[in-house]
């Protein structure tokens, strides 16, 4: 086989693989939308779920998903970015740094159900909080932190060394250089890491089963006092997310319209992830543009 044929063959193989991936993705979306879209209605999105009767909605689950996402990211992003900065800029190469890196890698490969059990032990039982949003968010933090640290470290290392040198040579301190040159340059890659982490939060069920629980108290959306039991903003209340809801109605649902609720929920979940992704990228682009004056 001459090299031209080989080249053509390789191109063909890669195109086939690309088509396969796209087709699987498109098929999946199509399936979820065709099955779920017809169940999505204003009522479905704005009524609370029911345990026994048909016609329940997913209002609380949808809110819980976004709220847990918000709380998780509020904890994960600062700690993760801080850890990444430490690993890339401050940690001296050596045994301790290697140990930290190994720990991070082990942490990132733990199955989520194990993290859920760990969360049950620590955030639910030891603290005595019971099933809470905060416990769920902390369990998801454990689950997401390694990715966040890793992507931040990689993003910072990818910033050209000469930019860093240029700043230091101007008599700028290390911290100011990180703050004003390195982080803005690394921002798009860090944002991508954060979006990936957020996607995992949306889809995660196993780690939340034993930490945020399978139920949601009766919520009053006009109550904005975060310390009130009925307030949706209370972080010390149990909260069932969409992903957990899909799992629970399918495995132990007593309602007659399981099919409708789970298909509808799945479609809403996928659409939420999509909207969140696009919005995060759009906002990220605006921020990046503003801080770096690039197009």
């Amino acid at each position: 086989m001459n090299s031209k044929t080989a080249d053509r063959l390789a191109t063909g193989v890669f195109i086939t693989i690309a088509i396969m991936i796209t087709a699987i993705l498109a098929g999946l979306f199509f399936y979820i939308f065709v099955n779920g879209f017809k169940y999505i209605s204003f009522d479905f999105l704005t009524t609370p779920s029911s345990n026994v009767r048909a016609g329940g909605g997913i209002r609380d689950q949808l809110f819980n998903s976004f709220y847990i996402l918000l709380i998780t990211m509020l904890i994960t992003v600062p700690i993760g970015v801080g850890g990444g900065i430490y690993m890339a800029e401050y940690a001296k190469p050596g045994k301790i740094t290697d140990l930290i890196r190994t720990c991070i890698e082990v942490l990132s490969s733990l199955p989520s159900i194990v993290i859920g059990m760990f969360g049950l032990l620590v955030f639910v039982n030891t603290t005595g909080w019971g099933y809470t949003i905060l416990g769920g968010a902390l369990a998801l933090t454990v689950f997401n932190l390694p990715t966040m640290v890793r992507t931040t470290e990689d993003a910072i290392r990818a910033v050209p060394q000469d930019l860093k040198e240029a700043s230091l040579a101007l008599g700028i301190t290390h911290w100011h250089t990180i703050k004003t040159v390195i982080l803005p340059t690394a921002f798009p890659a860090i944002l991508t890491g954060a979006i990936l982490a957020a996607g995992r939060v949306f889809g995660e069920a196993a780690a939340l089963l034993f930490t945020a629980g399978l139920s949601t108290p009766r919520l009053d959306y006009t109550n904005w006092n975060p310390f009130s039991e009925q307030s949706p903003l209370n972080i010390f209340r149990p909260a069932e997310t969409l992903a957990v809801h899909i799992w629970s109605v399918n495995t132990q649902g007593l309602i007659p319209d399981v099919e409708a609720v789970s298909s509808g929920s799945a479609a809403v979940l996928v659409i939420s992830v999509l909207i969140f992704n696009l919005a995060a990228r759009w906002i990220g682009r605006i921020i990046h543009k503003r801080i770096t004056a690039t197009k």
Binding site: P160, D162, L163, E165, A166, S167, A169, P184, T185, T292
Partner: peptide, 14 residues
Amino acid sequence: VGMVFQKGNPFPQS
């Protein structure tokens, strides 16, 4: 003591 490097290395800013 300022320094100029081998390759122009402006920051990705205006």
